[in-house]
Design a protein around this nucleic acid. Structure first.
Lengths: 359, 359
DNA sequence: CTGTTAGCGCTTTCAG
DNA sequence: CTGAAAGCGCTAACAG
């Protein structure tokens, strides 16, 4: 064992101890070149004695890039993002890459700096997930990043975000936000609901919320129900904000018979608020979520929601990005849209009586 | 913008374009040495034109290590581990380090290989979390790793695992597993329960489960209730396995009035199983969890559980490990035990009637 | 203030 | 089969 606190052993140390040249040690390590059995034994012995491990940086400097995949997300604690992270991890591991996860706390500035760091690190792919404000500033910065990454032999992957445009070298893995919301709201409409509150519209205009809201609106339109913007309520994608916003709404009077929550987490907050105001779900109010994450099953009643294949999103992201460089996947296939589907459980029911008046 | 697909620009490219030497560019970048204003402008301009970013590996090769903290866990999807990860992220970011998260799927082999990779990567600290089978093989391997890491100027941190022994250079951040279980089981006993099922004993003997089980046993002993090993039921730390195991137990007959689940997730599974067998919580059966993760609040009834300061565990891990090298924290303080406390909610109630007979 | 010169630890031709 | 030598991209003395 090496003495504590010292510098780590290097290839040269091993070579000296084994009485061979550095080249020979390197060959034993790589195992890609004939080395005499006896010599190999001595080298292996020296490696063990010195507790030697190769320095990744030196190695990376010689060949190109580290076998790394970077995954950038808002917060590891969100169940849906954690699932994507798991999918990324899985596929990256399968391909012998290690996965670097970084969080940004939803701060676009920090996202930029993290991506920069990842690029310096030489990641083979940089995967971004989470809705964003799709404004001009965002698009131009992302486009620049996409080109930068591309220029250094890496690849930008956008998950759950819209494509940047034709010529931009980026992979996009979307999932259907509008379709799922359309399905779930259609069902409420078929069940007789007319006053449906949309909870979780993003004040800033996050693309995820926007897509789901669009589905909600299209369903209403297709069923001939006039849109009422007073039913579209803003809330952050968090349990507590959803609780607060819906509670405030309820104190002002209930003018709806169903709530379409933008995520399962928001639905959890909504459920609590409804309960605290003495309203039963689904008898008094129907409730739907979106994401189908584990906790949705533990809510009582169990949540009718939309399943999003989050793990598959992660796996696909890695597969497309890495597959492109390795020639497995064509450039044309760099835009995937994964389907979502409604999962009917117990939080929705046909409207029993005509919509109540406010109060 | 550089042409797509080309090699990334290097320091030399920048130097050439700016018409200066590489050293000058390096100085502009480091900003630790006087450079003429005009020259600096030209260099900055070239950097922008070429979209240059420094190669981390080359940089790391020169100076010591990368400013990286590695965090190794079983699965990002567990709410409690995700909280620790968040704490680690937070503290690492505060210290200007990036955080590398890797998962092992609970496989000790993979844990070893991941740690090895991290060491090659030159991480400033390697943080491991999650219960383990504390056998001789584990201890000797971990001890070797601790020394290896120490020898390369890094630090091993064990979270939620027991110390390895006196001379071993490792930081340990534990949280009180026994105390919390003791508190929660004591409460059940005070409420009159005598037949308390422990759900989630690990067949393999994970340290986390072992600690909590020890607390359960000590509480029984202190209250003069004879231990009955038929009440200790093995289950994995997962919702579905908990559901399955408890369901099987219930089909064979109910010979308990309370369930002490080893984690909140296990409690969620238990709650579902109880419900499906027509048992009400807490009227028919009391139920407790452990961890106090978010979903515990969404269970109905809300779960009586033990709060574990997971984020603080993560922050402490980073603080101790990095603080040691930077002289902020003493070597003596390298073992922290964080307290846990009971959170009383609605899933427990006094025993209404004498314990039922089996059936 | 700026340029030249050694390497950091490793891989990889190219000669033995 | 093995060794010597040339860098990968960058930084840090050391000279101008």
């Amino acid at each position: 064992m090496t003495p504590a606190g010292g510098a780590p052993a290097t290839l040269r140390d091993v070579a000296e101890r084994a009485g061979v040249s550095m080249a020979t040690v390197s060959r034993v390590l790589a195992d890609n070149y004939p080395v005499a059995q006896r010599t190999r034994q001595r080298v292996l012995r020296a490696i063990k004695d010195l507790d030697y491990v190769a320095n990744t940086h030196a190695r990376a400097l010689r060949g190109r890039g580290t076998p790394t995949v970077a995954f950038v997300l808002n917060d590891v604690r969100g169940a849906s993002f954690a699932s994507v992270a798991h999918g990324v991890e899985e596929e990256a591991a399968r391909r012998g890459r290690i996965c670097l996860i970084c969080t940004t706390q939803g701060d676009p500035e920090r996202e930029l700096s993290v991506v920069r760091t990842m690029r310096e690190q030489g990641a083979g792919a940089v995967i971004l997930i989470g809705g964003v404000v799709d404004d001009a500033a965002y698009r131009s910065q992302m486009t620049a990043i996409a080109h930068s990454l591309d220029a250094s032999g890496s690849r930008l992957v956008l998950c759950g975000r819209p494509p940047l445009g034709e010529g931009v070298p980026a992979t996009v893995v979307e999932y259907d936000n509008e379709g799922g919301a359309y399905a779930v709201v259609s069902r409420l409409l078929v069940q007789g609901h007319r006053r449906i509150l949309f909870l979780g519209a993003a004040a800033n205009g996050s693309t995820t919320a926007a897509g789901r809201l669009a589905g909600y609106r299209r369903a209403l339109a297709d069923h001939g129900v006039p849109a009422d913007d007073s039913l579209v309520t803003a809330a952050e994608f968090s349990r507590v904000d959803a609780y607060d916003k819906l509670s405030a709404r309820l104190r002002a009077g209930r003018d709806f018979t169903a709530v379409c929550a933008v995520t399962d987490t928001v639905a959890a907050g909504a459920l609590a608020a409804l309960g605290d105001h003495g309203l039963r779900v689904p008898e008094d109010v129907s409730l739907t979520g979106y994401d189908d994450v584990d906790p949705a099953t533990d809510l009582r009643p169990q949540l009718t929601t939309v399943h999003v294949p989050y793990e598959e999103v992660g796996r696909t992201a890695v597969r497309l990005a890495l597959g492109l460089r390795e020639g497995e996947v064509s450039a044309a296939a760099q835009h995937a849209v994964l389907g979502t589907h409604m999962v009917i459980r117990d939080s929705t029911a046909p409207l029993a009586r005509p919509a109540p008046s406010a109060g």
